[in-house]
Amino acid sequence: MNVLIVSDNHGDEEILATLKERHHSDVDAFIHCGDSELPANEKSMEYFRSVRGNCDFDDKYVEERVESIDGVNCFITHGHLYNVKMSLMNIIYRAKEVGASIVCYGHSHIASVEEANGIVLINPGSIRLPRLRKDKTYAILSIEQSKKITVRYYTTEGTEVKEMSFETILE
C-alpha cells in the first residue's frame, strides 16, 4: 500500500490538486499533517486524512488520529502539541500510547525520517515553505505485507530526493 504524506501547504490549494492528479493512480491514501489553512470541506482537502495544525482554524479538523494502513497503525498529528521542534520524545510516547508503529507529523517544515524506539517518524517537510533545504517536499510511504516500510521523498515538481530514501522492517 502506498500513502502520500504532505504538510504545511499554508493556503496553497493548487499544489494539493497537482499532487492528487499526479499520484491518483499510484497511491492508495492521502495524509495531510496540518497547516493547510483551508476549510476542512474545501475541495482540495477531499480524500486527505487530515489533522488540525496550529494555523488551522476550522474546528472540523481533529487534533490527531490513528489510522490502520495495511494492518499498521499510523499516528497522524501536526506536532505543535508535542513540541516536535524541541524533541521527538513526546510524540514517540504518544505513538506508543495509541499503539502506533508509524508517526506522520509536520509543524517544523523540516523533511525527515528516522526510526526511534521502534517507531518510524515521518515529517514530509513543507510543500510551500521548507526549512533547512530549498526543495518543497512531500513523502510517499510504502507498506508491504512483510511489514517492510519504505519512505521516498519528492519535490513538488515530482523529482525524487534520493538521498532521503529510507527502508526498515517493522518488528
Rank of each mutant, 00 (worst) to 15 (best):
residue 5 I to L: 10
residue 6 V to I: 15
residue 7 S to V: 11
residue 7 S to A: 15
residue 10 H to L: 05
residue 10 H to N: 06
residue 10 H to G: 01
residue 11 G to D: 01
residue 13 E to S: 15
residue 14 E to D: 07
residue 17 A to Q: 06
residue 17 A to P: 00
residue 17 A to C: 05
residue 18 T to M: 08
residue 18 T to Y: 09
residue 18 T to E: 07
residue 19 L to R: 00
residue 20 K to I: 06
residue 20 K to W: 07
residue 21 E to N: 13
residue 22 R to H: 00
residue 22 R to I: 04
residue 25 S to V: 08
residue 30 F to S: 11
residue 31 I to D: 02
residue 33 C to K: 01
residue 34 G to M: 04
residue 34 G to V: 05
residue 35 D to M: 03
residue 35 D to T: 03
residue 38 L to N: 04
residue 38 L to E: 03
residue 39 P to E: 13
residue 39 P to N: 13
residue 41 N to C: 12
residue 45 M to C: 10
residue 49 R to I: 14
residue 49 R to S: 12
residue 51 V to A: 02
residue 51 V to Y: 01
residue 53 G to E: 02
residue 54 N to R: 04
residue 55 C to Y: 07
residue 60 K to P: 01
residue 63 E to Y: 13
residue 64 E to S: 14
residue 67 E to Y: 12
residue 67 E to S: 08
residue 71 G to H: 10
residue 74 C to P: 02
residue 74 C to S: 03
residue 75 F to Y: 08
residue 75 F to L: 05
residue 75 F to H: 00
residue 76 I to P: 01
residue 76 I to F: 02
residue 77 T to R: 01
residue 80 H to S: 02
residue 81 L to T: 02
residue 82 Y to K: 07
residue 83 N to W: 11
residue 84 V to P: 03
residue 84 V to Q: 06
residue 85 K to I: 01
residue 90 N to F: 09
residue 91 I to H: 11
residue 92 I to M: 07
residue 95 A to E: 04
residue 95 A to M: 03
residue 96 K to Q: 14
residue 97 E to A: 11
residue 97 E to M: 13
residue 98 V to W: 06
residue 98 V to Q: 07
residue 99 G to S: 10
residue 102 I to F: 11
residue 102 I to A: 08
residue 104 C to W: 01
residue 107 H to N: 08
residue 108 S to F: 12
residue 110 I to M: 13
residue 110 I to P: 06
residue 111 A to H: 07
residue 114 E to A: 13
residue 114 E to P: 00
residue 117 N to I: 00
residue 117 N to A: 15
residue 118 G to P: 10
residue 121 L to I: 13
residue 122 I to R: 03
residue 125 G to Q: 08
residue 127 I to F: 09
residue 127 I to L: 07
residue 128 R to I: 10
residue 129 L to Q: 11
residue 130 P to H: 11
residue 130 P to A: 09
residue 130 P to I: 12
residue 131 R to T: 10
residue 132 L to T: 15
residue 132 L to W: 11
residue 132 L to V: 14
residue 133 R to T: 08
residue 134 K to L: 05
residue 136 K to I: 04
residue 137 T to G: 01
residue 140 I to R: 09
residue 142 S to D: 03
residue 142 S to T: 14
residue 142 S to R: 14
residue 144 E to P: 01
residue 144 E to V: 00
residue 144 E to R: 14
residue 146 S to N: 12
residue 148 K to M: 08
residue 149 I to T: 05
residue 149 I to A: 04
residue 149 I to E: 03
residue 150 T to M: 06
residue 151 V to M: 04
residue 151 V to F: 04
residue 152 R to N: 12
residue 153 Y to N: 00
residue 153 Y to H: 00
residue 154 Y to I: 10
residue 155 T to I: 06
residue 157 E to A: 15
residue 157 E to D: 14
residue 157 E to I: 10
residue 158 G to N: 05
residue 158 G to L: 05
residue 159 T to C: 02
residue 161 V to T: 08
residue 163 E to P: 00
residue 165 S to Q: 10
residue 165 S to E: 12
residue 169 I to H: 10
residue 171 E to S: 11
